[in-house]
Write a protein that binds this DNA or RNA. Structure first.
Length: 476
RNA sequence: GCGGAGUUAGCAAAGCGGCCAUGCGGGAGUCUGCAAAACUCUUGACGGGUGUUCAAAUCACCCACUCCGCUCCA
């Protein structure tokens, strides 16, 4: 049984999907007005890993992650850089895709973009006005939060308290009530616009996620996720809009990841203290970044330091060593034959089984990757011990160990470029080395060793031809 | 002011009533022609106080400090 902590109830809940075996999940993606930074990456890696785990547990995950490409901040960049919003969006979107691929983040089932869903959003706003929960005011449209009784339920705040400090331009005279939020924003001169029943303008930020999630996943989602900073007002507003529209619960589980801090201060665009993924990957491997993030539970804050990143790099490199060793000694052509097992074989098989169970147990508890990794480290030590100390290495047993490593690395998204380690380039180097060694033996008239190398290579499918000028080799 | 999270060994980070985390690092050892790796043992922790309990890092209360949200942010 998988347990999930939901922000809405503030406790662990048993995970049950609406439709058996299918997870409908909407994750709030980034605004593409800049490069992907470690904060985005933390969120993306955490949820990517949870998604991979759910898939491992045989769920079909319909994972939608949007890109916000039309919004105040997009327009700011557009004006600053003197080029159309669409062009800005395209550029940063391509950088995001690049960085996401570098971090081995699985693409979402669909990555919808706000700009391409204007009509649907306008329709949603019209319906909200028809229902009497939204109103037009001088070309703007606002949501009337007093019409939604449960406003504040996600962020656990009462409307009175929200009002104390006010919200988004609280003193705006066009609003009936200070906490009302914008659904449609009238254009200002020079800004991009779309036509609507209320005149030229653009969508308010909170509309896109409601509209697009319902469009692709239906009126109630299993999971809705994002960074903790989105709880208020973004997700609160999404709930207000969506539930007013449908009368149904918008999402059953609300997941929010913790922040990355630098020097005890939140990493954010507004503070300008963020670490770009593109730059970070010049110094650390993608695996190190993933491990760095996953060592901490997804809801806890992470303090970024170079020291911690260095540690993650060392750790992941060592883990890779044993995974690679295991792969080298695994024999997938043979099945485990109970009659031929030594005590150490049986012992390892037992440990593999136990590790798999312990791992599942750890992850079932609100996706505790920290404990999950502890299981992996214990397990890798056991495999190392076997590989180095067992009287005979049984290829079929090691193959079982390799299978578990494969399962684990797929879930954590580690060592994806695994197969590229055995390249034709490496084969060439090895063959040249053997030819050189054989040359040394022949110089010493050690024909026996020289012939052994030639014969064994032929056995392996590589033929050497001794010609007067040089030695040629070919794959047979 | 309101709402929330936290303070665990040199560093990172789980645990959330009784026993082990785990990773990086430090020390010793095993192996060993050299090197590297690995394995074993070891080091060392629960912010401060007061309670509850047979038993507390874990529960309650108080104090101190930190961070986050209430404004664009993952």
């Amino acid at each position: 049984m998988i347990k999930i902590y939901s922000t809405l109830t503030r406790k662990l809940e048993e995970f049950k999907t609406i439709e058996p075996g299918v997870v409908k999940w909407y994750n709030c993606g980034p605004t593409v007005n800049g490069l992907m930074h470690l904060g985005h990456a933390r969120s993306a890696i955490a949820f990517d890993t949870i998604r991979r785990y759910l898939e491992y547990r045989d769920y079909k995950v319909e994972y939608i992650m949007n890109f916000t490409d039309i919004e105040d901040r997009m327009i700011e960049v557009s004006i600053k850089e003197q080029r159309p919003v669409l062009e800005v969006a395209e550029e940063y979107l391509s950088y995001f895709r690049r960085d996401m691929a570098s971090l081995n983040l699985k693409p979402a089932t669909i990555h919808p973009r706000a700009m391409l869903h204007m009509n649907q959003m306008i329709e949603s706003i019209e319906k909200l006005i028809e229902k009497g929960v939204a109103y037009e005011s001088e070309g703007d449209v606002y949501f009337d939060v007093r019409k939604f009784d449960e406003y504040g339920k996600l962020s656990n705040q009462k409307l009175d308290n929200i009002l104390q400090e006010g919200t988004e331009d609280a003193d705006n005279p066009k609003k009936k009530f200070p906490a009302d939020f914008t659904l449609w924003k009238k254009m200002k001169p020079g800004e991009p616009y779309w036509p609507s029943p209320w005149g030229k303008g653009r969508i308010g930020w909170h509309s896109e996620c409601s509209t697009m999630s319902m469009l692709y996943l239906g009126e109630t989602l299993d999971i809705h996720s994002g960074g903790q900073d989105l709880i208020f007002p973004h997700h609160e507003n999404e709930i207000a809009q969506s539930e007013s529209l449908t009368g149904k619960q918008f999402a059953n589980y609300w997941l929010h990841n913790g922040f990355i801090n630098i020097d005890k201060e939140k990493m954010s665009k507004s503070l300008g203290n963020f670490v770009n993924i593109y730059d970070l990957l010049k110094y650390y491997s993608p695996d190190a970044v993933r491990l760095f993030v996953l060592q901490t539970h997804y809801r806890s804050p992470i303090i970024f330091t170079e020291d911690a990143m260095d540690q993650a790099q060392v750790t992941v490199d060592r883990l890779f060593d044993v995974v690679l060793l295991t792969k080298n000694y695994a024999d997938e052509t043979k099945k485990v034959d109970d009659a031929k097992l030594s005590d150490s074989d049986k012992d390892l098989l037992e440990k593999i089984k136990k590790a798999r169970e312990d791992f599942v147990e750890a992850m079932n508890e609100d996706f505790n990757t920290s404990n999950g990794l502890a299981v992996v480290f214990d397990y890798s030590r056991e495999v190392n011990e076997y590989l180095r100390k067992a009287e005979d290495v049984n290829g079929s047993v090691i193959n079982e160990a390799d299978k578990l490593f494969d399962e684990l690395r797929v879930i954590f998204g580690l060592f994806e470029d695994f197969n590229s380690y055995l390249t034709i380039d490496l084969v060439e180097k090895l063959i040249k080395l053997l030819i050189e060694l054989r040359g040394e033996f022949r110089k010493e008239k050690n024909w026996e060793m020289g012939d052994k190398i030639r014969d064994d290579l032929k056995e392996a499918g590589i033929t050497l031809e001794d010609t007067p000028k040089r030695i040629l080799w070919k794959l047979t």
